[in-house]
């Protein structure tokens, strides 16, 4: 069942709190231990991106909710920073080259470990926002 947004300040010192909250929510609704690591990995990439790059202002909200939809655990992440679709990041080569630039693995892992990832730039609570929705099977 869909829940209310949890609102945090998108600063590095809040990351552990944000992560622990979503992991706790996932555990409560029955996400399996095997899926928790994948969930955490994808979630870290997205949230750290918001913390690192979304804002150059002092007001840095990040809104998050996690809930079950059928057999899927859905996570939604919203920020009001500069418009950015992380899914547009360039594809990294497979297999990688040892001397390639080391970036690009964050979004790659999100796409690998979540079964569905969608991005919209839309109004959330009356303000235009980056809105990312990720789903993975809970069991």
């Amino acid at each position: 069942m869909e829940t209310l947004w949890k609102r945090y300040e998108a600063v590095p010192e809040n990351y552990d709190i944000i992560r622990d909250d979503i992991i706790e929510t996932a555990k409560k609704v029955g996400v399996s231990t095997a899926k928790l690591t994948k969930l955490e990995l994808g979630f870290e990439e997205i949230v750290v991106n918001v913390i690192s790059y979304a804002y150059d202002t002092e007001n840095r909200p990040i809104l998050i909710k996690g809930y079950l939809v059928g057999d899927k655990f859905r996570i939604e992440v919203v920020d009001y920073g500069r418009q950015y679709n992380p899914l547009d990041a360039p594809q990294i080569p497979y297999p990688p080259k040892i001397n390639q630039p080391p970036g690009g693995y964050g979004v790659f892992l999100v796409k690998q470990f979540f079964e569905s990832v969608t991005y919209e730039y839309e109004e959330i609570e009356g303000i235009l926002a980056n809105h990312l929705t990720m789903e993975l099977t809970a069991k």
């Binding site: 497979y94 297999p95 990688p96 693995y105 892992l109």
Partner: peptide, 12 residues
């Protein structure tokens, strides 16, 4: 799992 899906096992 992470090393395999990223292809790291192919080059390391």
């Amino acid at each position: 799992d992470v090393f395999k899906v990223t292809g790291f096992t192919e080059i390391m």
